[in-house]
């Protein structure tokens, strides 16, 4: 299963990078969303997909049967942080539309300072 997940994560990264290299601002943010999905799944997969019980203490479950709880805690933190950053980006994009009237990255080059 881990090999299949690794390939799927690679696919998510590929799609994310391809979107980030595009010139539309909103697609870049969609790309970062995909990138964080890929990263979260990567953490989960690298922690190992074994274990038969969720990490909640229950009667009659052997300690070795629990899923590794640490990657889950890390992912939970990462999800919240990436959500905060994504929402900030989105509002930034929204303000950029309002002020500049475009979402084309190629038109947002700042001031031309070369003679």
């Amino acid at each position: 299963m881990e090999i299949i997940m690794s390939v799927a994560i690679g696919f998510l990264f590929m799609a994310a990078v391809y979107l980030i290299l595009s010139k539309s601002l909103i697609r870049i943010i969609i790309g970062t969303g995909l990138l964080s999905h890929g990263a979260h799944l990567l953490i989960l997969t690298m922690g190992g997909l074994g274990g038969t019980a969720p990490p909640v203490v229950a009667d009659g479950v052997q300690i070795t049967d629990y899923v590794d709880p640490l990657p889950q805690a890390l992912i939970l933190t990462a999800i919240v942080i990436s959500f905060a950053v994504t929402s900030f980006f989105l509002v930034l994009a929204y303000r950029a539309y309002q002020e500049l009237g475009t979402d084309d990255m190629n038109l947002m080059r700042g001031i031309e300072d070369r003679d």
């Binding site: 992912i75 959500f83 929204y94």
Partner: peptide
């Protein structure tokens, strides 16, 4: 599927809010 109930909850909620925000920006 991978037995992470807290993650599933958070992910569902946050994905919903994110999509709403994306639609707002759209």
């Amino acid at each position: 599927i991978f037995r992470a109930p807290d993650l599933a909850l958070t992910q569902l909620v946050i994905e919903t809010i994110s999509v709403a925000l994306f639609l707002l920006a759209f």
